[in-house]
Amino acid sequence: GLVGMIDRPRLEVQPAIQKARQAGVTTLMITGDHKTTAFAIGRELGIAEDMTQTLTGQEMDDIGDEDFKDRIAGYRIFARVSPEHKVRIVKALQSRGYVVSMTGDGVNDAPSLSSADIGIAMGVTGTDVAKSAADMILADDNFATIVSAIEQGRNIYSNIKKSVTFLITCNLGEVVAMFFSLLAGWNAPLIATQILWINLLTDSLPAIALGMDPGDPDIMREKPRDPGESFFAGGAGRRAALGGLSIGALTMFAFWFGHYEHGFSPGQDSVPLHVVEYARTMAFMVLVACQLYYSLAFRNSRKSVFAIGIFSNQYLIWSIVLGILLQSLLLCIPGMREAFNLQMLDLQGWGMALVLGFLPLAGSEVYKLLANARIGKDRGTGGVSPTAS
């Protein structure tokens, strides 16, 4: 008689490989199985499409190092390989600029796990030698978990970038307002206690909330980030600069308007103290409003806040509501108002603070709309659209 047996791949592996491919991550299979067997499994999983993408260890020995480095990108499956072959494959990929992650469970995988940029050992079936040589251990021995970890890692990095860029933007707005006001010969639009209040409360709460932003469902459609890439790449530096300049300019305008409403100019001598305090209140309220509302724009650099859902990050919404509430209490409670040298705003002042506060967010939404329209036009005409880093 004849008995046939097959060890089928896990059902979740093929979708995970496709998801990794969308994210710009190429999956290679390195095995000790026969070349035909390895190709059959690789084709079923979507790793390879043609037998020419399969290479054996014996065939690898016949290829010189430089030639192998030039041809390494064309192979997807390596069969009948030894530990030395695995190390050679890893080093050839690294020489082409790839960031290489290697998974393995046996003693013979230890050299390649150690040579890879990220060595991943199997936690269930892996040997102690493999675990010691690896950078991380996969607790469930599931390839799909690696792809999930890539997605989570990208979202975590994205959230950190949002929080830091938001804080830089807010602080830049304060610096711009203070520096150029003093340069113009005006009184300082903010005093130390007001700046401290902004930095401790109205800046910090949205920044923490942005760090807990839900993951972007399209993040695995982006290409891998260059390890040497600047933190401000992908337009983050430009957004921080433009946002900081606009917030600073609006704060200065509010300070000027507070004087103008009482018939004075910030550059005049002998401006009454209550007028200066009123103008500082205007600047203080506009600055805080700009920062709180503008935090919504940092949730995604390409998608509108309406596309991702205004209320999809409840932490951010509540941080904005709490910031507005604290700001209102600061202005409405006499003792607090006097401690911060503030004046109660009139109806026109409240309206001006509300309108000016929304302008940075509105400007960001218009910019995204125009940028997406341009990208859509490029795709429609066969152009190449830029990918986010």
Rank of each mutant, 00 (worst) to 15 (best):
I17A: 06
I17Y: 02
I17W: 04
I17V: 13
Q18L: 14
Q18H: 12
Q18E: 15
Q18W: 06
K19V: 00
K19T: 14
A20Q: 08
A20I: 00
A20H: 05
A20S: 14
A20G: 07
R21T: 11
R21P: 00
Q22T: 06
Q22A: 15
Q22S: 14
A23L: 07
A23M: 12
V25G: 04
T26M: 11
T26F: 06
T27E: 07
T27C: 14
T27Y: 10
T27F: 14
L28F: 07
L28K: 09
L28P: 02
L28N: 04
L28W: 00
M29V: 05
M29I: 11
I30L: 13
I30C: 09
I30P: 03
T31H: 05
G32A: 13
G32M: 12
G32I: 06
H34T: 02
H34F: 06
H34M: 07
K35N: 01
K35M: 12
K35D: 05
T36S: 10
T36Q: 12
T37S: 09
T37H: 08
T37L: 07
A38R: 03
A38F: 02
A38K: 04
A38Q: 03
F39N: 05
F39Q: 09
F39S: 05
A40P: 02
A40Y: 04
A40M: 09
I41L: 09
I41K: 09
I41G: 03
I41D: 07
G42M: 04
G42F: 00
G42L: 02
R43Q: 14
E44H: 11
E44Q: 12
E44S: 08
E44W: 05
L45F: 09
L45M: 12
L45C: 08
G46T: 01
G46H: 03
G46P: 01
G46V: 01
G46K: 04
G46W: 03
I47D: 02
I47A: 05
A48L: 11
A48D: 06
E49K: 13
E49L: 13
E49Q: 12
